[in-house]
Design a protein around this nucleic acid. Structure first.
Lengths: 200, 200
DNA sequence: CGTAATTTCCCATGATATCCCAACTTATCC
DNA sequence: GGATAAGTTGGGATATCATGGGAAATTACG
């Protein structure tokens, strides 16, 4: 995997980019949350495309970073330039969420009893360090300093699509995390739960 | 309720003055999260944005503090400069509520039996020390002395967004609280309950 | 009712964030 | 291979935010 070492050379295409494919990803659009019974973990909002692939980017002197064009296109599907960034609670990276994703989380948290300890802990963890971000006409946004510090972001960082969310990593930390994920996926033979589940 | 330390006199409004009666807000628990069209949030009034992130602020010599611009923007969605502050009954911080949130609480408390012990305890806890606050044209408000004392607020304090409410903490106390919440979230793998639930 | 204290309103300034413009690089199309 | 479009990068101007101080208005007290 080569890239912009020292600011010179290297293709600008996303990391591990494959040959050109149609940009519309139909699976996401046709998935319906009303299929099947049982628990529904998340909603897919019509028009929103998935965040896919990994994209290298740079922080400049003013703390600005270019939001990857494909991620902008994903948000374009819901006519939005706004997303949310928060320190990940499990990994040393920044988690990115779209407005619909945040709204879905917010809706579910609102089902909890006010002033329960569970609600207080979840709200603080999910909202207490979550920054609302809007990218500008050039496709850039200012990365909050506390997130730079938390994830150890340097000049080079990587946006990693995770479907309906994305993550932002320091490059080396991402490599370690990916290796761990691959190993665990192999160990567990990587089963993906279906959507229809019998009641508990 | 005593007034400003070092000063004289109590609250400006008579003790038993009633606040405006709460407006009717649909009970949150009976509304189903909308899975189809636009974003609708239970218990959240349309136009009101979430309180997010953490914002450091300072108390000045006159007891004024700048209400964070993003929180002003959140209230702007409902065309309001008014919010409510109360000592949190679970943590050593100040809780902030919007008018709609206070109204929603009031509405739910109105479902309780009048003069029941539960209602008396909840009403006193939630309303007995709640101050109505309006920020001025510069975005500042005067922090009530009893809240400064209760939360141990010094010159530096932090506004923390919790979704539909916010909290105001002394900086070190917030860090401890956040660490606790993150640990609890990790212990529970930050599972946020889904929306389709079997009856209890 | 007069005076003192407190609160609210108004104005100015410095710092920071956002917006705007231009240039460069890379990818795509013909 | 050249032209064009798209994406990225750099810098400066402008707008917004936070802060400090004082004047005016309001409230409390004797």
């Amino acid at each position: 995997m080569v890239g912009r070492a020292g600011g010179v050379g290297g293709p600008r295409r996303p990391l591990n980019q494959r040959v050109a494919e149609p940009r519309v990803i139909r699976a996401a659009r046709t998935r319906r949350t009303d299929q099947g019974g049982g628990r529904q973990r998340s909603r897919v909002v019509r028009g929103m495309r998935l965040f896919l692939n990994s994209h290298r980017a740079k922080l400049d002197k003013k703390g600005r970073v270019s939001f990857p064009a494909e991620f902008r296109a994903a948000l374009d599907g819901i006519d939005s330039r706004t997303f949310y960034l928060r320190p990940h609670h499990m990994y040393g990276c920044v988690e990115g969420l779209s407005q619909p994703k945040l709204d879905a989380l917010s809706d579910r948290l609102n089902q909890l009893d006010d002033y329960s300890e569970e609600a207080e802990n979840l709200r603080l963890t999910l909202f207490g360090d979550t920054a609302q971000i809007t990218y500008d006409a050039e496709g850039r946004f200012s990365m909050p300093q506390n997130l730079i510090d938390f994830a150890g972001l340097g000049e080079s960082l990587v946006f990693t699509g995770m479907g309906d969310v994305f993550q932002i990593w320091e490059e080396q930390a991402l490599e370690r995390r990916k290796a761990e994920a691959r190993q665990k996926a192999r160990d567990n033979r990587l089963t993906v739960p279906g959507t229809a589940r019998p009641p508990a």
